[in-house]
Write a protein that binds this DNA or RNA. Sequence first.
DNA 1: GTCTATATGCAGATAGAC
DNA 2: GTCTATCTGCATATAGAC
Lengths: 205, 205
Amino acid sequence: MPRLAAGDRREALVEAALRVMGRDGLAAGTTRAVVAEAGMSLASFHYVFASRDELLAELVRRVVGRELATATAALDAAAIDPAAGPADCLRAAARGYLGHLEADPGAEQLMLELTLHAVREPDLRPVAREQYRAYAAAAAALLERAAARTGARWRGPLAEPARVLVTLVDGATTTWLVDRDTAATRATLDAAVDLLVARYAVVPA
Amino acid sequence: MPRLAAGDRREALVEAALRVMGRDGLAAGTTRAVVAEAGMSLASFHYVFASRDELLAELVRRVVGRELATATAALDAAAIDPAAGPADCLRAAARGYLGHLEADPGAEQLMLELTLHAVREPDLRPVAREQYRAYAAAAAALLERAAARTGARWRGPLAEPARVLVTLVDGATTTWLVDRDTAATRATLDAAVDLLVARYAVVPA
DNA sequence: GTCTATATGCAGATAGAC
DNA sequence: GTCTATCTGCATATAGAC
């Protein structure tokens, strides 16, 4: 193995962990499985990470960052049609998410597993809180953007509908992972979006 | 230890597992930890359960049964006020659930951990599906009862709003477990109930 | 920086005496 | 039916040569 900078090695290990744990679950992502996937030795792992939990914390931060980037990109793409209303934008974003979930279910399941694990571990709890603060902020940004692009506006503070949105995506993910009923999940999200817009948005005539 | 019938021993082990895993998580619920909690020897475990997964399957079935009983009881209690509408009933049921979640967060977290674990294990996948079928049926029964008690009725098949309800409760649970913000979760559920009723219910004047 | 080899401990499951 | 003792394997983490 060539000599790698510590940062590059951390990066490679995070990517390997994502592959292994996405495929077989958080519990299957042992340090040994991760280094095998990365083609490294076990000692190299502990050279750049003090512990497995330190890897998990970095994993969450990295994936959340990636998700946020994907979400804003999807939203921008959805708001191109000038005749679209905020409900159309949000529906398109929801479908985008659902497509991503279908394409790589393991990744989203892993995030849920990580969240539940982090909540149990005192050292990782702050990471989970940060993760959900980021989700809420992203949801608020999504709502704001959907309104701005369609000339609508939202009643009251964004925090409430943003939290409803996060709750819905979380719940829809869990439910879909169990029954894999994409049509039903799409219907649920579509209905939820309509409800959200009906209650919180002011759409110009 | 006295000689116990196999059935009684299974029951005792399931209860012990619920305590240990509710407290410290699914991963901490090793066979050894469970038998220690139950005050039994390790061999007794394998005398009545072929494997740990068999215990987990029975665990899910038992808790789901208990949850369904609690949910219907709470609904009946909520529908006593003759002036209540379906939204009032559902709000009361949501608050009842939230109270239960606050009183014993570990139990609900454990159910989520079990669901995600079951989805990964081929042998347990059918258990998870059964669990969510039961949730959906319970949600439909809840909606039906809320309508019947208040003279309202639902538009279209119950399956769609029932799925929305399950999704919401799932998502609200995850979100609450992370930030423990009861007020925000209550607001989310209240808003969601209003939305649900506005879209799906026909309330008599 | 990178490796092999190892320390240490706990997991699920079983053997076999009583 | 119930127990102690044990088999077997894998976990995280570290020591120390190169």
